[in-house]
Design a protein around this nucleic acid. Structure first.
Lengths: 245, 245
DNA sequence: TCGAAGCTCAATCATGTGTTTGAATCATCT
DNA sequence: AGATGATTCAAACACATGATTGAGCTTCGA
């Protein structure tokens, strides 16, 4: 009898046990928890192909599990996806601790640089199990039913941090529309290299992003944005919203 | 016998006859060329769902055509898609004549504003048959086999125009990497509102983009970018590539 | 040892979708 | 009118994929 697969989120195990994860990564152990192997295999597949295009047959093959195991442990494909999102959310929170960027002891300019650098690496770094950010980028262009939950728990916290940083850099301006659009400009510059990577590679005539290129991209975006924020700040703050530029 | 459906591009009719198009838009006319009705119906469907998720049954239903008509006129689904891309390319060239923005008589700042404004409207305007830009945005996040052709004929010409404008605004800097990344920053800001619209709508708590909001978005992006370009230009052009910011 | 519960497996079903077919219909020319 | 080729149509086919089933295996406590 199925173990009453947790319909949405497992309250018992909000973050998977690290030991279990390591055990599953051993791979060869046939007794390794199938559920965990499925989660580890499903993450990259969903991140690469999106929810719809990913097939549970592919995931199960990579996990060395039977197709029926998905139904047994997660109910259905959507249940597996929800579990992966929750898993990714917990893992990403420690990988990119955006909240530390609210520390007022660090200059706001540096905090923006760190933010951009961390964001770029999170969505573009290919090496480590970095499918967390890629899953978020996927959801942005191909929303699933879980989007509302993802936005509130995974995206908005980091968005609020960026808005706060931009707000500091734009002071004494206080227009929320100005600040939020500035934050959107920063994010848009970053996401372009992820969501339109195939076109960018052709226009720039480069394939893939090396670590040095990621640093260069992050530096270019930081410079562009900081110059823009300085220029916007220098505008008369009492002028009509948006100024004349 | 099938009329030797043009395997890739029909050299006989590079741009569909306007009269035929208008006739097809009448809709009720059962004698309207099925081929044209299919093209007109397939454009929005491919633009909305992408090549893979779009179904020819849906397209044929909207076109009032039989499913076999796709095979008869275009060979297969991919052939229909190629024809739609070619059709969109011709139609978009007149909708957004980017080449006019190379006119040196207009200040480069204004040309950048026009570019951003036109680009935003092309990818976000919902009213008119504006699926041309949306198809391009789709191809960026979900490339098909036709991507190489699309980049060279539909995207790179407009990209080169933007790079030229940014190059003027950054003079006397001449570093291609600097200029191209600046152009990428401009495009990234625009595409965010298209490719991540579902997330943006939730973060900004607005649904859909009104005409006034499109103008506001374009204005914000232009201001942000022009300030950034001015700041980058003011940097010492003899300093190491990228400067210290 | 026995049995029950948890878990896995190969096989199968159900559905959506691209493709194909052969007949029926239409248009055009003689 | 008749013939011929072009076009349309309903139906069926082939395949991929998610879901399901019932038998078998493993584990563990009585």
């Amino acid at each position: 009898m199925p173990p009453e697969f947790t319909p949405n989120i497992a309250p018992d195990q909000p973050v998977p046990d690290a030991d279990v994860t390591r055990q599953a990564e051993a791979g060869a152990d046939p007794v390794a928890l199938t559920r965990q192997r499925l989660l580890d295999a499903a993450g990259p597949v969903f991140a690469e192909h999106g929810f719809r295009a990913a097939t549970i047959r592919d995931i199960c093959a990579k996990a060395g599990a039977n197709i029926a195991a998905v139904h047994y442990h997660f109910g259905d494909k959507a249940g597996l996806y929800r579990a992966v999102l929750e898993y990714a959310h917990c893992a990403a929170r420690e990988a990119f601790p955006a909240h530390e960027l609210l520390n007022a002891a660090i200059p706001a300019e540096d905090r923006l640089r760190f933010y951009v650098h961390g964001f770029i690496r999170q969505i573009l770094d290919q090496g480590r199990p970095a499918w967390h950010g890629q899953l978020m980028a996927r959801e942005m262009v191909e929303p699933s039913e879980a989007l509302d939950h993802i936005v509130e728990t995974g995206i908005r916290p980091k968005w609020d941090v960026l808005v706060a940083i931009c707000g500091e850099l734009l002071a004494p301006h206080r227009d929320p529309d100005l600040i939020e659009h500035a934050a959107a400009s920063v994010i848009g510059q970053c996401l372009l290299f992820k969501q339109s990577s195939a076109v960018i590679e052709r226009l720039f005539d480069r394939r893939g992003y090396s670590s040095a290129e990621l640093d260069n991209i992050a530096r270019r975006i930081s410079m562009f944005s900081l110059h823009a924020l300085r220029g916007l700040r220098a505008e008369r703050s009492d002028s009509v919203s948006g100024g004349s530029v």
